[in-house]
Amino acid sequence: MTRVLIITTNYPRWEGDPHSPWLLELMGRLREKGYEFDVLAPAFQGLAAHRIGQTPVYRFRYAPARWETLTHEEGAPNKIRKNPLYLLLLPFYVLAGMWASWRLGGKGRYDIIHVHWPVPQGLFGLLARRAGGGRLVATFYGADLVLAQRFSFLKPFVRWFAGRCDDLAAISSYTARELTRLSGREPRIIPYGIHLPPEQDWPATPGRILTVGRLIARKGHIHLIRALAHLPEAHLVIVGEGHEREALEQEIRRLRLEDRVLLTGRVSDAELEAYYQSCQVFALPAIVDESGDTEMLGMVSLEAMRYCKPVIASDVGGIPDIVVDGESGVLVPQKDAETLAAAIRQVLTDEALARRLGHGGYHFAREHFSWGSVERATRAMYGEADAAG
């Protein structure tokens, strides 16, 4: 068995916790190929070491339990932007993570150390390798690069860390370009994988627009709500929760759209699947927010494509890796409610166009985002010479 240590900020806290389900899926597939995993992740409100399925999860404590909320839920960058007092936890987080990595790396003697979100977890990976050896690889998701752009003192760290890795991956071509610009190294592009049900036309609720995502600025929900004001024949379902909810509710009241917008909050997997299946169009109105953060891939678009739903999305970040304009969906400029409304109206009123885009998206997802290709690319990053074939 090849022993792998996964170092990450964001790992499920219990069975069924919605954080990083794609990572669990990938680890399960690699386990069938002879890999064995341990995980190192921060505690959340005092959470101790535990297991998720077959995987031991080692949690490092960095504060009293009631303050251990830097990670999970909205994610550390969003929490820090919302409440800068979270910055006070960072030194303790980094020191605790470094100590835990040193101890676990020396004890575990891992063949591979895989760091996810390398700012600041790259330090943990380097210490684990120093303590016990192993091949060091890292996956960048984009949030770490946004932090490096915002805080210039982090740029040298990204270059330094990337130069010491045996291999690198990014989840989209956009993230890869940003990483190359900062570090001078060209990473592999390894996106998320997706399961596809049999291809079919799923019955839609007429006029239903769906969007899914945390209620944070970069998701652009407010622009979709403003677009709805131009679409009297439509109604909008927004699935997700976050600190922007109050602002969105105020905008809904201002535009008198209370009877046509549903904010569901968090829903079960079964409810979410039903919303995907029943929408007539899926929208991802993402923006580049004030901090420079944006969608680095846009996984929710792929989820809609599973059900042959036409996707309309902003032309920002890594979204064009999934939404190819006119082929797998429609791209529109960010923050442009009128253009967004016009694109939605066209899809709602042109059944042939909607069907062509929906099935085009399904075929695109099948060709470019299969779990088989993600698994092979990851094994190649881990050093399997014949895995990429």
Rank of each mutant, 00 (worst) to 15 (best):
T378A: 04
P333Q: 02
H19E: 13
S370N: 00
S183R: 10
S278D: 02
L224F: 12
D166K: 07
D336P: 09
E290N: 14
I80E: 06
W99D: 04
R103K: 15
P91N: 11
R130L: 15
G125M: 14
Y192Q: 11
A143I: 02
H72S: 11
G108C: 07
K82L: 13
I171F: 09
D201I: 13
F60Y: 02
L70T: 06
K155Q: 10
Y174D: 03
L357G: 06
P206I: 03
L87F: 12
V332M: 03
A170H: 11
F153C: 12
E246K: 15
L196H: 01
L127E: 13
N78W: 08
N78A: 14
I80G: 03
G105Y: 06
L104A: 09
L23Y: 05
P77N: 09
A342M: 09
A217P: 07
D201P: 08
P310Q: 07
T180S: 07
L257V: 08
G105M: 01
F157E: 04
F161L: 01
G46R: 05
G28H: 00
A343K: 04
L353H: 06
A385R: 01
I189N: 12
M305R: 10
V212Q: 14
M98H: 06
L224R: 11
G125Q: 14
A270T: 14
R159A: 14
Y192C: 14
A380I: 02
G132W: 07
E32Q: 13
L215P: 04
P187C: 12
V119P: 10
I238K: 11
G329H: 04
R13S: 03
S291Y: 12
S278L: 00
G97F: 11
F37C: 09
K79I: 08
Q277E: 00
G142Y: 10
H230F: 07
I113E: 11
R159M: 08
N78E: 15
A365M: 12
D111N: 04
A385F: 01
P56V: 02
L147T: 12
R188I: 01
Q149S: 11
V4Q: 01
R345F: 02
R51S: 08
G383V: 11
V261Y: 08
A65K: 05
Y362N: 02
A247G: 15
A162L: 13
L89P: 03
